[in-house]
């Protein structure tokens, strides 16, 4: 467990020094929110329509910004043979996966934390539903990152990794994205977390499946 945290801490320390991933993810996410808010214009004053439009906008911003970040996640490990250095260490391969998942999720949460206030302002969102929204975003992001980290490792060894990751990731994300978008929509309309229990259950199950499966197959994705 401690090794997992050391790996996550190492990744975050490296990232906070360059902020390459963080900046590109944040800028992309904000651009999406701003462009959609401008294009929807007057519609945003009608709460019911916001509930229908905004979840899609929010998750488009998060998933595409996340894909951008994930594509860089294993790039640093591939440089100078760092991944091989880790593989030479007496650590369980799943520790590498969990460590990378934690650091990727942490970065995505930061991006989301900075994006949501802008989203609240631009989409005229009722702030009372924040706890429910936070829960949905947490579970959706965790599922997304669990699969994304695995596929980032898988695609990092290929020549076309920038193309390969979104091609593989986006179809696999559908089971997580659909309940996340539906739950976000419901929360935005009435702010009651009681209405989204079925979506929460679905997200929990998918998160668990993806996270456990990720640990089990990660060893094979980084094998020579």
């Amino acid at each position: 467990m401690m090794k997992t945290l050391y790996i996550a801490a190492k990744d975050l320390r490296s990232e906070f020094r360059t902020k390459q991933m963080l900046n590109s993810m944040l800028i992309f996410s904000l651009i999406v929110i701003v462009i959609f808010s401008i294009s929807f214009g007057e519609v945003l004053s009608q709460t019911e329509l916001v509930g229908k439009l905004a979840p899609g906008v929010l998750w488009v911003a998060f998933t595409f910004a996340g894909t951008l970040g994930l594509s860089r996640s294993f790039a640093a490990e591939m440089e100078n043979g760092c991944l091989e250095g880790l593989k030479l260490s007496p650590i369980d391969r799943s520790s590498i996966y969990i460590g990378k998942t934690i650091s990727n999720a942490f970065l995505m949460f930061i991006v989301e934390l900075l994006t949501i206030p802008i989203f609240i302002v631009l989409f005229n969102y009722n702030i009372s539903g924040i706890p429910g929204l936070a829960l949905v975003i947490f579970l959706g992001t965790f599922g997304f990152v669990s699969v994304g980290t695995l596929l980032s490792a898988l695609s990092s060894g290929t020549r076309t990794r920038e193309i390969m990751l979104p091609v593989l990731l986006l179809p696999l994300m559908i089971p997580v994205i659909i309940p996340a978008v539906m739950a976000t929509g419901k929360i935005l309309v009435n702010g009651d977390p009681g209405n989204i229990l079925s979506e929460i259950r679905l997200l929990l199950v998918y998160d668990l499946i993806f996270f456990v499966a990720g640990q089990l197959v990660f060893e094979y994705t980084i094998a020579d």
Partner: peptide, 20 residues
């Protein structure tokens, strides 16, 4: 291949691998 993380310092690299 050096197996070193470029954004970490020399000491941080060694401490990280010590933990590994």
């Amino acid at each position: 291949e050096t197996y070193l993380y470029h954004e970490l310092t020399a000491r941080e690299n060694l401490v990280f691998f010590s933990h590994m």
